Amino acid sequence: MALLTLAEAKAQLNLTSDADDAELQTYVDAVTAPIEEYIGPVEPREVAERHDAESGRRALVLRTTPVLSLTSVEPLLDGGVSYPVEGLVLDPDTGEVRRRDRGWFRGLLLFTMQAGRADTPTTVNLAARMLVQHLWRTQRPARGGGLAGGGEDYSVGQPIPGFGYAVPNRVLELLAPYRLPPGVA
């Protein structure tokens, strides 16, 4: 599942020719990183994270969210305890993992999971289309000699912390309902 396809980007830009497909594909590929930095993984992928529960923990919070499923929880040191995923409760949005038996996690652990979303929300896809459009227009001269899409239409205003001028406010507003909680990146 792709965040955005070349055909969707071409439709957003009203392009019918294949002349710019190779260059446009670069833009399509590039928008995934800034969007996922803001809202977490969209495209499903395997992720592995190390967690320290040496002193014992009732719950651990995964750093990568959202989580589609846990694959395994294995010890990183010889003699450590494995935790079968069937015996765990996962909150896919917050990444909190607890044991069903209310026991404690112990040891250095490696959590392997499928992170991302089962489907790309329509609003996220639209934000990706608009981001491609914004970036594409900064490279295309307008007929009057200025940059296409200039003026207030794609204005970023003040630089946005972590994003600078590359991501317009309208894209961030569309992504806001899916934004990662503070402290998660």
Rank of each mutant, 00 (worst) to 15 (best):
E37H: 07
T94F: 10
S82I: 00
R63D: 08
A33V: 11
E96C: 07
E49H: 09
R63Q: 09
A33P: 09
V67Q: 01
V67S: 04
Q25A: 12
Y83D: 08
N14T: 05
T26A: 06
V28M: 04
E46Q: 13
T64K: 08
R58G: 15
L76R: 14
T71L: 15
E96V: 14
E54R: 11
N14W: 02
E37F: 05
R98A: 08
A48K: 15
G80K: 00
P66M: 08
E23R: 08
S69A: 10
S17H: 05
Q25H: 06
D21M: 05
D29V: 01
G95E: 05
Y27S: 07
T16R: 15
L15C: 06
R58S: 14
T32A: 01
T16H: 14
G80T: 03
P44V: 08
H51F: 13
D18K: 14
S82P: 08
R50N: 13
V47C: 05
E36T: 00
V28T: 04
E54F: 05
L77E: 13
I39Y: 01
T71E: 15
E46D: 15
T26C: 04
R45E: 01
E43C: 04
R100W: 06
P84G: 07
D91T: 03
R98G: 11
P84E: 07
T71F: 00
E54Y: 06
V42W: 06
V28N: 08
A48P: 03
T71Y: 07
D20K: 06
S82A: 12
D93K: 12
E23V: 03
L60F: 03
R98K: 12
S82G: 01
E23D: 09
S72E: 10
L62W: 06
A53R: 11
D20W: 02
